[in-house]
């Protein structure tokens, strides 16, 4: 579903990603761990082209992200094509980024109506189903400011699901939450994973990685240090940097 080959990304003189190779199969749940500033968010943002990569190749569902191959030339995709590509990838942010001027239901309905041209009635019904799926069936008419952090993040997940994404990206979805609210969000994510959704999750929740991930990637300073099934990377880390990191978060 996702394939990265030697992905490089720099901001000016700062090299943030220095050759990332990885592959996420359909239905796989991959957790990315790593210390702050290692480039985890940047990588996720490259996957849906919120950031442009400088070198390497990146595919989502067999299609190159941001470009089209034309013989031996690369053609940049138009704004519309890029937007279309993004619409099939759900993204959940650390700080929720719900639209504060819309109710929970309106947040969920906006993109299907404006991007896909779905009718209001149909969008509303789908929003109701999604809210129920994240355990907020009765909060459709509430504004984000009136919801707790955990509830806001669950609405944000429902908003991303409304576009029927083939891939979900999570960027530290529970890092901004009070500890007692983390569980309810992880629970929704676990259910999603069980349902067969392909997910790439940047997280510091080792427990979640252990129990829900099919594979774990440990990143540091823009490179993948170690990757494999969770029991190997988390249970028996080979690399000193992984060991040091795990010792710190556990």
């Amino acid at each position: 579903m996702v394939k990265a080959e030697a992905v490089h990304k720099s901001f000016g003189a700062l090299d943030v990603l220095k050759g990332i190779d990885l592959e996420v199969a359909r239905g796989e749940v991959m957790c990315i761990l790593g210390p702050s500033g290692s480039g985890k968010s940047t990588f996720l943002r490259c996957v849906n082209h919120l950031e442009q990569i400088n070198a390497g190749r990146l595919w989502v569902d067999g299609e190159m992200v941001g470009y089209r191959q034309d013989g031996d030339r690369l053609l940049t995709l138009s704004e519309k094509e890029i937007a279309e590509g993004r619409s099939a990838i759900g993204m959940v942010f650390q700080r929720f980024n719900l639209f504060p001027h819309m109710t929970a239901a309106q947040n969920i309905m906006l993109a299907p109506m404006k991007v896909r041209g779905v009718g209001r009635k149909e969008a509303k019904q789908r929003a109701g189903e999604l809210l129920e799926q994240v355990g907020l069936a009765d909060r459709g008419d509430t504004y984000p400011a009136q919801l707790s952090g955990g509830q806001q993040q669950r609405v944000a997940i429902a908003r991303a699901l409304a576009m029927d994404p083939k891939l979900m990206l999570f960027d530290e979805p529970t890092s901004a939450l009070d500890p007692e609210l983390v569980g309810e969000v992880l629970e929704v994510m676990r259910a999603l994973a069980k349902g067969g959704m392909t997910m790439v999750v940047v997280t510091h929740e080792i427990g979640f990685a252990k129990s829900a991930a099919d594979s774990v990637v440990f990143m540091d300073q823009g490179v993948i240090v170690e990757s494999g099934p969770p029991e190997e990377v988390l249970g028996n880390p080979q690399h000193a940097r992984t060991k040091a990191f795990l010792a710190e978060v556990l």
Binding site: L50, E79, E84, S87, F99, L110, A111, V115
Partner: peptide, 23 residues
């Protein structure tokens, strides 16, 4: 308006114009 708003709208597949207009 917080930049996260634009980013969330873009991530949902909205164009620059749609993002400006609705978000």
């Amino acid at each position: 308006v917080d930049h996260g708003q634009t980013e969330a709208a873009n991530a949902l597949g909205m164009t620059r114009l749609q993002t400006t207009r609705y978000v």
